[in-house]
Design a protein around this nucleic acid. Structure first.
Lengths: 207, 207
DNA sequence: TGTTATAATGAGCGAGCGCTCACTTTCCTA
DNA sequence: TAGGAAAGTGAGCGCTCGCTCATTATAACA
C-alpha cells in the first residue's frame, strides 16, 4: 500500500497504541515484546517501526496521549459545576466513575508507567507533570471555595490538593492489584463526609 | 570456607538482600542483573545461588521480610497509645517518620514490587496480604474509637481504613518519584485536621 | 495498464542475561 | 598437619528480544 490516506495512517497508529497498551498492561513494560505488540496490532514488526522509532517511544506516547490528558479532562468535565463544593464532589464522582466504568485498564497502565519512571527520566517527567497539573487544578478548586466563603479560610489548599491526588493514585493502585476488601463506593461516601466536615462552613442552622 | 557458622551465613544472606534491594530500587526488577547484585553483595554469581534459587526468589524474600512486616510493626509501635484518637494520629506520625527518615528506600522497593505484582502471582498475593493486614489494623482502631464513644458512631471503619491505607500508598508513590510540590509535613496536618473534624465527637464545649 | 513511490514483510543479527558446573579455595576436625 | 566437606569462582551455555534491511506487495496516477 503506497501513498495512503492520512486517516489510514492515524488508524494504524491508534491500533498500534491499543495493542501496546494491552500488552504493557498484561505483561509490564519490560516483558512486553515487540513481536506480540505487532501481532496484536495486526501488522509485522518491520511495519511497526515505520510508526514508532523504539519500544520506549510507544510507552512515552501512551503516557502523554492517554494518561497525561487527565488533568485537562477533569477541568473540562467540572467546568459547569456551581460552586467549589459541587465541583469538588464532582471530581470525586468522576474519579470513581473512571475507575469503575470508563477506563478500567488505564489504572494498570498508570502503574506500569510508574514502574518505568524509576529508570526512564522522560517517563518520570511526564508523570510528575501529570501530578503537578492535577495538583494545580485541585488547589484552584479549594482556593475558589475559600475565596467565596464556602470553605474554611484556614484550609491549606496545596496540602489538601496533594492529599486528594495522592489518595486517587493510591486507590488506583490497590484497585489495579484487585485488592479484596476495597469498596470504592463506600470510600466515596467517607471521603465526601470527611471533606464536608472539615472544609464546608456550616452557615448556622443548616442541614 | 567450609563449615561456617550460622551467623556468617545469615550475614551473607542479609548482604545479598541489601544488594538486591539496592539494585532493584535503582534499576527496577527486570533491568537488575544478577551480576550486579553479586558484585555489590561482594561475592560471585555462583555463590549467590547457594543462598537464593532464583532472582525472583530474592524479590519475594524482600517483599516478605522487608515490606510484609509493616502491619506488625505498626501494631507494635502503637500498642501503648491511650485511646483510639491517639493511636490513629500516632499511625500518621509513624508513617511520615518512616517515609522521611527511617526507611526512605523502602518506598521505592514497594513501587518495584507493585510493578512486578502485575505479572507475578506470588508477589501479588504478598502485597494483597500486606494491604489486608494494614487495613485490618486500621479498621480495628476505628472500631475501638466508635466503641469507646470517642468517634462518631456512624463512621464506616472498613471504608475509612481502606481510605487511609490507600492514601499512605499514594503518598509513598509520589514521594518515590520525587514529585515536587509535595510537603508531607503539611499533608500530615491536613489529614489529622480532617480526621478530627469528621471523626472525633466533640464533648460539648471542649477545645 | 505500466510505472512509481511507499507501505509492509519477516528472517536474522548482535547483544545481554539468568543460571550451571567443573574447578579452586578455605576452614574445621581428628 | 593431613584430609575432607563445604563455600566460593566465573567462563560460558542456551535462549530471548529489540531492531534492521533486502525484498515483496500494493494503491494511486498517467
Amino acid at each position: 500500500m503506497p501513498k495512503v490516506t492520512a486517516e489510514h495512517k492515524e488508524n494504524r497508529r491508534q491500533a498500534i497504541l491499543d495493542a501496546a497498551q494491552a500488552v504493557f498492561v498484561e505483561k509490564g513494560y519490560q516483558l512486553a515484546t515487540i513481536d506480540e505488540i505487532a501481532a496484536r496490532g495486526g501488522l509485522s514488526v518491520g511495519a511497526l517501526y515505520r510508526y514508532f522509532p523504539t519500544k520506549s517511544d510507544m510507552m512515552l506516547t501512551l503516557l502523554e496521549e492517554r494518561l497525561g490528558r487527565t488533568p485537562e479532562l477533569f477541568r473540562r468535565l467540572t467546568m459547569h459545576a456551581e460552586g467549589a463544593w459541587q465541583r469538588l464532589s464532582l471530581c470525586v464522582d468522576l474519579f470513581v466513575l473512571a475507575l469503575r466504568v470508563r477506563h478500567p485498564g488505564t489504572g494498570r497502565l498508570l502503574l506500569v508507567a510508574w514502574g518505568e519512571a524509576l529508570q526512564d527520566r522522560t517517563a518520570r517527567l511526564g508523570l510528575q507533570r501529570r501530578f503537578s497539573d492535577l495538583l494545580g487544578y485541585m488547589k484552584s478548586v479549594v482556593e475558589e471555595g475559600i475565596a467565596s466563603g464556602e470553605f474554611r479560610p484556614d484550609a491549606d489548599p496545596s496540602a489538601l490538593a496533594a492529599l486528594l491526588v495522592s489518595l486517587a493514585d493510591g486507590v488506583t493502585l490497590s484497585w489495579s492489584i484487585a485488592t479484596p476488601g476495597v469498596d470504592v463506593r463506600r470510600m466515596r461516601g467517607t471521603v465526601l463526609g470527611m471533606l464536608r466536615a472539615y472544609l464546608v462552613q456550616s452557615r448556622s442552622g443548616e442541614e
